[in-house]
């Protein structure tokens, strides 16, 4: 049996390794599929659904679905892009995302996706839920207003024994991220920085540090999210 399978994304045939996820195969081929809860190096979770593609006509998350021979995948279509825009809009209305006062603004992946999909205004009513800011941790501020519950911090931040620093607390709409108090003392500055970098929004902010990059030079100020994947492929002549 061969280890290489052929799949079709938006009419373009690409080769992928067996067992590879659709997202990784597409990224390698220079096709951008938007992601939010996914993070390189951690096990995909499929919780935000923004990477949804149509596999043989059925919606699947590209970050968790492995490729198989002859898959026909729709990605950059009007229907799917509107669905993705709707997901971004839902995230904006169900939290308190005050872009003008957020430290993460300009480097925020949620905001960058809103820019990419030209979100002028969410189609859903704003909820303005009551949530807390927790600044009790010595190195990190948790702003639950901005948390989109992607579980990136839970999956990516661990101590040397593989123990998680973060966990979900409570259930349903009351769920929040929490830092384990027994080991949180051990969090190094590097780990705190990593936690902030891992967070796609501004829910984890480092204390005594911030606003390092001036407006206009931040990550997504001039570059559309996903452009790096598309441009890299163009340069290497993959597409």
């Amino acid at each position: 049996m061969s280890d290489v399978v052929t799949i079709t994304i938006d009419g373009v045939e690409i080769k992928a390794e067996k067992g590879q996820k659709i997202l990784d195969a597409a990224t390698k081929a220079g096709i951008y599929i938007p992601t939010l809860c996914n993070f390189e190096g951690v096990k995909p979770k499929g919780s935000c659904r923004i990477c949804s593609v149509l596999v043989n006509g059925r919606p699947m998350t590209a970050c968790t679905t492995p490729v198989s021979e002859g898959m026909v995948i729709e990605n950059d279509t009007e229907y799917l892009n509107d669905l993705r825009k709707a997901i971004v809009e839902i995230m904006f209305v169900e939290g308190n995302h005050m872009c003008p006062v957020c430290e993460r603004s300009g480097n925020c992946e949620l905001q960058a996706l809103a820019y990419r999909y030209l979100m002028m205004v969410p189609r859903f009513p704003y909820l303005f839920p009551t949530r807390d800011i927790d600044a009790s941790h010595p190195k990190l501020i948790k702003d639950h207003d901005r948390c989109i519950l992607c579980k990136r911090c839970i999956r990516a931040i661990q101590d040397e024994n593989g123990k998680n620093f973060f966990a979900f607390k409570r259930r349903g709409y009351k769920v929040t991220i929490n830092i384990d108090p027994s080991i949180s003392e051990k969090m190094t500055d590097e780990l705190a920085q990593k936690a902030m970098d891992v967070c796609p929004v501004g829910a984890l902010i480092r204390k005594e540090k911030g606003y390092d990059v001036p407006i206009g030079k931040r990550k997504y100020d001039k570059v559309r999210i996903g452009n790096d994947i598309e441009n890299k492929a163009k340069k290497e002549g993959v597409v």
């Binding site: 904006f92 005050m98 003008p100 006062v101 205004v121 969410p122 704003y126 009551t130 949530r131």
Partner: peptide, 19 residues
């Protein structure tokens, strides 16, 4: 036409909304 963030989502005055 809603012009600017405050008209679109409440903006800084809306920071009183949730707390």
């Amino acid at each position: 036409i809603s012009l600017g963030e405050c008209a679109i989502m409440g903006g800084l005055p809306a920071m009183r909304n949730n707390r």
